[in-house]
Write a protein that binds this DNA or RNA. Sequence first.
DNA 1: CCGTCGTATTAAAACGTTTTACCCGAGGGT
DNA 2: ACCCTCGGGTAAAACGTTTTAATACGACGG
Lengths: 358, 358
Amino acid sequence: MNNRQISNGKGKNGTFVTIKDIANYVGVSTATVSMVLSGSPKISDETSQKVLEAIKIFNYRPSIAARSLVLNRTGVISLVVPQIENVFMQPFFSIALNGVYDACVENGFRLQIEVASFQFMKRKRYLRLFRERAIDGMIYIGSTASDTYLKELEKEEFPFIFAGSYLKKSSLPFVIGDNIKGGRIATAHLIKLGRKRIAHIIGNFSVPSAVDRFEGYKSELEKHGLNFDPHLVSIGNFSHEGGYEAMKKILKFKPDAVFVGNDIMAEGALEAIKEAGLKIPEDISVCGMDDLPLARKTRPALTTVRYDIYKIAYRAMQNLLNKIRGKEIKSEVLSVKLVIRDSCGAKKKGIFTRSSHA
Amino acid sequence: MNNRQISNGKGKNGTFVTIKDIANYVGVSTATVSMVLSGSPKISDETSQKVLEAIKIFNYRPSIAARSLVLNRTGVISLVVPQIENVFMQPFFSIALNGVYDACVENGFRLQIEVASFQFMKRKRYLRLFRERAIDGMIYIGSTASDTYLKELEKEEFPFIFAGSYLKKSSLPFVIGDNIKGGRIATAHLIKLGRKRIAHIIGNFSVPSAVDRFEGYKSELEKHGLNFDPHLVSIGNFSHEGGYEAMKKILKFKPDAVFVGNDIMAEGALEAIKEAGLKIPEDISVCGMDDLPLARKTRPALTTVRYDIYKIAYRAMQNLLNKIRGKEIKSEVLSVKLVIRDSCGAKKKGIFTRSSHA
DNA sequence: CCGTCGTATTAAAACGTTTTACCCGAGGGT
DNA sequence: ACCCTCGGGTAAAACGTTTTAATACGACGG
């Protein structure tokens, strides 16, 4: 082998340098090289040195495929995302991706993207990937109530987890924020400010966590003896435009506050309210949920419920990797908390003194 | 094997069903099964049927690792993206991801995400992934002038391509839109409308395609005998806020038009101009570039240069896959075209009659 | 009845690792 | 002198495919 071939990690015939090449060069067996690589204490410092040196000279790297074959693990995790146009442009998915990715690489795994398309379901890709031993685990974000096909995974012990969502009537594990509590504390906050006609904009009745936020809202109303008026609830499809339209509908029924299912829709709602000539928070209090970066930038700055998407995704991946390493997997519900800014009027009324502008 | 075990694709001891299990069950050799799987015509219809049946019964799927080992290809492509906070929230990267992903799955490949972090460079991950035979190819989006370390890949024949960017003084292949021409036609359009003091907001001087847009702008000015005034150029960092700030700086020097390096910054620029009490397009014409979805929604709707990011990404992946299949790879420069809306004033002046509202 | 040819199938090698069971020599205890 | 142990290493099997060269088996023409 000449220098150039050595330096690019290929052998003379263009094939890759293998563990045998290293073993031959040093004059030891492949077992020895392998043990050096895995840091086994059985190898003397002297040979260890020589092997390491040869590896460096030849730019040797073990074949992932060969290693996968014998170890029966691949080091890759599939992240499954819903089939939504430009899904990652939505802050929720973009942030979740970051959390998933970070936890993944910190543990030496690689992340592969899957879109939960019709094919994904129909051709049972969620099973095939496991059966082909193409992945070690799967993490699913943004599932909806209609993803019941995933129940097929319940019987298998394939490492699987939902992040930021879950499937009703299923034993599949998940990590999620406390949506019900989020709905409650947002609503409680508005009630404490003296609001009586509190509206709600829900993302969509087919995504469990959105329904939970709604349930939290409803139950808090009841707890305080306020009656629930269906006219004050509208669907916003998680989008800016949807929030805008939903708010316009609701405004006809004279609300004095609105708890919006996420910050994106809340931004749209603010727009609709301003357009109607009403003042925020004087005439209407607006509370969002998620505490996305944009919540700081709205006028007025949005009071919202902090829902740590990054952490959810990160924890979910950690759980998944633990499962892969043999531990049992446990679902988690992460806590949420109110972040008071300017869109509800708490500060002006002096009810809450501690700001959350940080 | 009992039913449950059969149905989940595992053998009695919890290990997976292998090609041997199928061969034994049918009473043929593994070679036969393999050939059935690959659709070889040498196998009789009769045995072919039997094998297929057994495969279905046992839910057999070949091991990717074993197959990779012998075929020396993995079926996975790495997509490398720059390390930017929430990179995919930016329309450019989100759309590029879509293009890359679509082309990838259409060809039966899987897509793996890599972030071009400091570690990625320092630990030479761009080489290691290839040396470990972990991937078949690599596609790199959003590279900057400082990514010179990638030149190490020039000597190797590892399948690699840039999408929507490229590296100066490098032979690494790429697919990109015609940025220079984009800068030219945008500027030409403004000149044709009678504008004399045409400003420019550049994303960043360290990304080649942004510089190309700038060069196009500059050369078109010269071509028409307008002199280039450095005061009319500012940096907007590709962001809404950056565009806003850049525009504020430029406004001091009384421009009558501005060609903004991308639509995001253009949106910010519109805001700054309105805030200054100037009318668009009467007082100032604004032309963006990229034709992102948001360009339709601004007030006034943004005239811009259509730069098909999806197509660039899609074509880049196609080229990459062709290279993997043995064809030679060739760099491509895709064409761009002007999309006239309301922010330059062409319609009112009646210079151009064909609208592009579609 | 014998060569020949074609077709359907198979045995075995190869891909590049990891790991287990075994080996060998040196040193220590009795 | 003998038996153990122990450190340092190796041979070989195993992982699950694909592929090539060989083989078995008729049929068929002479």
